[in-house]
Amino acid sequence: MVDGKKQWKAWLYLSPVILLTLVFTVWPIINTVRIAFLDDYTLMDDVGGMTFSVGVYNFEKVINYPEFLTCLKNTLLLTVITVPISTFLALLIAVCLNSIKALNRLLQTIYFLPYVTNTIAIGIVFSTMFSMVGTGFGGANPYISTAGIINNIIGVFGIEPVNWVNTGSTYWANMFVMCVYIIWNALPFKILILLGGLQSVNKQYYDAAKVDGTSRVRTFFRITVPMLSPMLAYVVITGFIGGFKEYSSIVGVFGEEMGPAGNEGALNTMVGFINRNLMSGSPREGIASAGAILLFIIIFAVTMLNMYVSKKRVHY
């Protein structure tokens, strides 16, 4: 510990971080809570010295927005679908990567690439890959030519091209593209963490299992998974938190309209909802703040649930 005389030095060195945190994190949180409970709040009136009545008016309004319910549904769907699938795939890939020797480094690098690539850029690539822009499309001509590689690939197997992301595409086609994109984008980080975990498992456990004639499946579920459980818990918890904050991936694929042309906002999320209320011509700070607090409560509750489950299931 630092003794009394030197303590001011420690505080001095910490002060830039503390100051920045206070100004840009702590105060905004407090202010968000304050604004959420003020009726008909606007920044102009606040600066002008007006007082607002206190109440849950903003929350009522948020919940009654049909748009909010869409956002909530989209967010929950995306999270619930992508987190388990991406965790499972990441585990599979990590185990495979860990068990091969040749090209191990190269493959690790390849699998890690999405992590260091810009989300919006990947989104644009995805929207192009899944696109269906062709000369005959939408016209009377039954001949459909497609530009997207995905439709070209499934065409090889004789499957009719699907309208994934263009005008007139269905909600579930959009959702499918988003899930593929989010899962793919979530893999690198999860693989990295799980591979690190796998490499730290003592090889002797596997030798012991081998001598005892343990089948591969049993070794995986009774030894590998429990040994990895702390990393799995971490990956799942951060996955859920990231899932609830999903926003930029949808912007990447569909642009700020958050949906295909003609069906704007169909894939909007919680964060998108908050953002839209803040960025509209006449900002609705109260609504945005209430939405942010609701999102916080959801994330908090899910994380608590995760922690509760992992306490019983995780072997540290």
């Binding site: 030798d207 001598v211 040994m227």
Partner: peptide, 14 residues
Amino acid sequence: GVGLVFQNYALYPH
């Protein structure tokens, strides 16, 4: 049909 005891025992910790 061998039984092996490892130097660091390799007991499954979980």
